[in-house]
């Protein structure tokens, strides 16, 4: 699992967002297009692409793309 690939798929769930400024440390909940639907789309993407089931509550604990990437990586290993 490559971070660059993960980041691309993650950012793809943000509708109408200027993605050039988003980095590993960006607090994605601060982005203007963020809302609960975006969270659902990210959870669905992670399940489809990485076969990792994540709950809405687990998602709420994570603030940056890097943190989500670490979470998914660790679940894939376990």
């Amino acid at each position: 699992m490559e971070f660059s690939d993960f980041k691309f798929k993650f950012i793809d769930q943000f509708v109408g967002e200027d993605i050039s400024t988003i980095s590993e440390d960006s607090a994605f909940r601060q982005l203007p297009s963020w809302d609960s639907l975006t969270a659902m789309a990210i959870i669905a993407m992670i399940e489809d692409e990485y076969k990792v089931k994540m709950t809405i509550d687990e998602m709420k604990e994570l603030g940056t793309i890097g943190e989500v990437f670490t979470f998914v990586s660790s679940r894939q290993l376990s």
Binding site: S36, L37, M40, A41, A44, I56
Partner: peptide, 11 residues
């Protein structure tokens, strides 16, 4: 329940 409907639809 938007989240449940989203999950149903996408699956």
């Amino acid at each position: 329940d938007g989240a449940a409907i989203f999950q149903f639809t996408t699956s």
